[in-house]
């Protein structure tokens, strides 16, 4: 392992280390409380590890079968209701945090995709990914997850049209070759 890799690993695990030290110090100071903390943390770790293998494999499968290049190709072309449905459907598929989607969204707009569809795509990517909804249902209940999903989708559709109608949004243009 080279030095830079070690440094980035250290940085990523630093917050965990800090929390661990706090827990250890606490257990030393007050064993009773320390046990309560460790018990609660351990319980949630087990719950998490029970579902994560399936969740990340599902993410991997979606990533492989619905590649981002495919999304980019279709979403740039389709308009009307088909465009809206496609934006919703494609938003539920990708893996990865929202900031990965910003360059994709920018590329879509430059290729002539409708602003509302791109906003809808970003919103669904952020809030309505399938594996995410399943984990939410497990921890917070099916009715919580589904109700939040339905309300969020409604809000995302409204946002798309509001931004298109009132936003006067101009997206920075850049060379297509830059992608």
């Amino acid at each position: 392992m080279n030095k830079r890799k070690a440094q980035s690993l250290f940085r990523r695990f630093l917050p965990v280390g800090v929390v661990l030290i706090i827990v250890l110090a606490l257990s030393h100071h007050d064993p009773h409380r320390g046990r309560a903390v460790a018990g609660a943390a351990g319980g949630y770790l087990v719950e998490m590890m029970k579902i994560l293998p399936a969740v990340v494999l599902l993410m991997g499968l979606i990533d492989v079968w619905v590649p981002k290049a495919l999304i980019q190709r279709y979403l740039g072309q389709e308009a009307g209701w088909r465009g809206v449905l496609l934006a919703l459907a494609f938003g539920t598929a990708p893996t990865g945090p929202l900031y990965i989607a910003f360059p994709i969204a920018s590329g879509l707009l430059q290729k002539g995709a409708r602003l509302s569809n791109v906003v809808i795509f970003l919103g669904t990517w952020a809030a309505a990914k399938i594996p995410q909804v399943m984990v939410e249902a497990k921890f917070l209940g099916l009715s919580f997850a589904l109700l939040r999903l339905v309300l969020t989708l409604g809000a995302i559709l409204a946002m798309g049209y509001l931004m298109e109608a009132f936003g006067k949004v101009k997206v920075p243009t850049k060379g297509v070759e830059e992608e």
Binding site: V16, V19, L20, I22, V37, A41, L45, M48, V56, L57
Partner: peptide
């Protein structure tokens, strides 16, 4: 897909451990 899944898992690991620790502190303290 398996490899992507493993990568996603490893990428999430620091935040998982952090949140698990925080959950413990919140619930215990």
């Amino acid at each position: 897909a398996l490899r992507v899944g493993a990568r996603v898992f490893l990428g999430m690991l620091p935040s998982i451990l952090l949140v698990v620790g925080l959950v413990g502190l919140v619930m215990g303290l």
